[in-house]
Design a protein around this nucleic acid. Structure first.
Length: 586
RNA sequence: GCUGAUGUGGCUCAAUGGCAGAGCAUCUCACUCGUAAUGAGAAGGUUGUGGGUUCGAUUCCCACCAUCAGCUCCA
């Protein structure tokens, strides 16, 4: 995906960003020409294009955007020079007040003392801006720019402040690059897991349960196959598996801290006059399991996995297909260990992540999230744990970026972000270091010295949410899952009714060998059956007709269209078995 | 939750202040066919829900629900 993102002929990123930034000024100028009453906020360049936030007394429509585009083209043709100038604070404030730009006035007021206050002027339009910019609006190719969307955004990202309108745009030095970009966006939409999920019969969402996905037979097969793999790979890494209740009483959630720190997102109910909450996380249940019997240092690290169904009340506007739901399965695990084992355990976990993600061909970026405002535990403890996470991945030669203040309330974490087909990243894996919950639940182990000690733990998920991960790989593979994952691996296509019985026999034989097989016994032409099986993205089609019956063969076709010709069923089973094995764990 | 848009048979989409239409899918019949759509016929809709305006609302207005784009949030 990243290759596709780098098709631009812009010389380099700095130039690209400068180009887009100047576009945002041209757009603001166009808007002010058309509707002088519109107030300007901020208009930066972004990874793909630019936006400008504005406050208008009316809502921008697609027609407005076309008008703005037309005016932008005019401004490009006018070849206006961009001139930078600086003003002392009082004059800068006076200029923006005269122009009636309250947001700019606020920005200037918030600039630190001594900061240079610079403006860029092009024709009649002047904007507060640090720059840099192109030297002329004539540098922008007017017919290779497009305003792509208009949406809401909060002033300064604060949901308590004004809601502004954000207009997004994209531009390239050449028209055909813009076309290629727009075509890529269209192509990415075809991979949307919500669309593919419907087309392939994987899952559905209903008004009756917003954010609570239904899995259909094919999606369920996919999910179970994924979980089979998960169990195998975790067994290999020394994990055991448990299952804890979906609902536990209030006392437990108070003890874990969730009642105080997470209550707004929890579904609660009253049973026999006692408050209960549906679990938003699996850890408290896992604590109870650990605490249910004494442990020796010899048992550590103790790796306890759980495919846990959790419910979280997300804001209605945040829901998004399988990517953001209110109920999902976490491929959770808690590893209990001594302080000395922390670094090893973290590294072992990262190696497990690498193994799993590489099976799917997914790349990731790592974020280290540090202490949030709402937290438990001391600052020293947090810093110590953050350092351990840093050291562990640095020693493995991995890069990370810091996400300040975004840790869980009980500890810092490493988040693994996987990219979807639109280049959006989704947090899937996470490793959270926690010395707070063991404290709260008074977990213990007996050390070599015969004394009781407190273990530390990590909370970790690899796939994250099974649901989200299915969404990510659906887009990643564009619905064409590798054979080991495909809900249907083989589709038998009898050419005529005469071959129906033979097809059923072949199907039964493959089924007995553990392959997932379907027979298309409809009275339809072979061309139609092939077309539909291809659209269903079934990896292998076996065409069987009179010739195959006579010779005891199957005629094999891949979903790519490749015709492998007739072969014996044994040969085909070997071929399929091989393909399945190369992808999955031994 | 906020701003804007959308909501029509299972799916994709038309249309209109005056009897709601197509393609695909479904069902029936014929065809028995060798690598991306055989033909004919039938059936299928209180136009998201609830109010209102109107002689008449699927269409106009209001509220709610859901979805979409984004913002905010996201253990």
């Amino acid at each position: 995906m990243s290759e596709e993102n780098n098709q631009y002929t812009f010389e380099n990123e700095t130039y690209r960003k400068t180009y887009w930034h100047t576009c945002s000024h041209v757009m603001a100028q166009a808007v002010k020409r058309l509707w002088p009453e519109v107030k300007l906020a901020i208009g930066p360049s972004i990874d793909e294009g630019w936006y400008y936030d504005m406050d208008a007394p009316f809502a921008f429509t697609p027609e407005h955007l076309e008008q703005i585009e037309a005016e932008m083209r005019k401004i490009c043709k006018e070849k206006l020079k961009l001139e930078r100038f600086e003003l002392p604070r009082p004059e800068a404030l006076q200029l923006m007040e005269e122009k009636g730009e309250p947001f700019k006035v606020e920005l200037i007021n918030d600039l630190p003392e001594g900061e240079v206050i610079s403006f860029y002027k092009q024709g009649e339009f002047t904007d507060l801006c640090a720059g840099p910019h192109l030297d002329s609006t004539g540098r922008i190719k007017g017919n290779a720019l497009k305003l792509t969307a208009c949406n809401a955004a909060y002033w300064r990202g604060d949901s308590n402040r004004e809601t502004l309108q954000r207009i997004y745009g994209i531009a390239f030095p050449k028209k055909d690059e813009l076309d290629a970009y727009l075509a890529r966006i269209e192509e990415a939409k075809k991979r949307d897991h919500r669309r593919l999920g419907k087309e392939l019969g994987l899952f559905m969402l209903r008004d009756e349960g917003p954010g609570f996905p239904f899995f259909l037979p094919k999606g369920m097969t996919l999910k179970n196959t994924l979980l089979d793999y998960w169990r195998k790979v975790h067994k290999k890494y020394g994990y055991v598996e448990i299952s804890t209740p979906i609902m536990l009483n209030r006392q437990l959630w108070e003890r874990s801290g969730h009642w105080d720190h997470y209550k707004n997102n929890m579904y609660t109910t009253v049973i026999d006059d006692v408050d209960f909450a549906v679990k938003p996380m699996n850890c408290p249940g896992g604590m109870l399991v650990y605490a249910s019997e004494p442990h020796s240092y010899r048992d550590l690290p103790l790796r306890v996995g759980e495919i846990g169904l959790v419910h979280r009340h997300e804001l209605s506007g945040a829901l998004h297909g399988l990517f953001r739901v209110r109920c999902f399965n976490q491929d959770d695990a808690h590893v209990f260990m001594t302080r000395e084992q922390m670094q090893d355990v973290i590294q072992e976990t990262v190696r497990l992540f690498d193994e799993v993600y590489s099976v799917f061909g997914l790349s990731y970026t790592i974020e280290l999230s540090t202490m949030p405002e709402d937290h438990i535990g001391t600052v020293e403890e947090w810093e110590r744990n953050q350092d351990i996470l840093k050291q562990a991945i640095t020693a493995m030669g991995k890069e990370f970026v810091i996400n300040e203040g975004d840790g869980a309330f009980y500890g810092p974490k490493l988040d693994f972000h996987l990219a979807d087909s639109l280049g959006r990243t989704w947090q899937c894996g996470t490793i959270q270091l926690d010395s707070q919950l063991p404290e709260r639940f008074e977990l213990e182990y007996t050390g070599e010295d015969g004394q009781k000690h407190r273990p530390v733990m990590i909370h970790r998920v690899v796939l994250g949410s099974i649901e989200r991960f299915i969404g990510v790989i659906t887009e990643h593979f564009a619905g064409a899952f590798p054979a080991w994952l495909a809900p249907v691996q083989v589709k038998l296509l009898p050419v005529t009714d005469r071959a129906a019985e033979y097809a059923a026999k072949v199907s039964a034989q493959l089924d007995a060998q553990g392959f997932r097989v379907e027979v298309d016994s409809r009275n339809e032409k072979i061309g139609k059956k092939i077309r539909e099986a291809t659209l269903e993205k079934v990896p292998f089609m076996l065409v069987v007709g009179d010739r195959d019956m006579e010779n005891g063969t199957v005629s094999v076709r891949r979903r790519s269209g490749e015709d492998l010709g007739a072969m014996s069923l044994e040969d085909f089973a070997a071929l399929l078995g091989d393909e399945v094995k190369t992808m999955a764990i031994k």
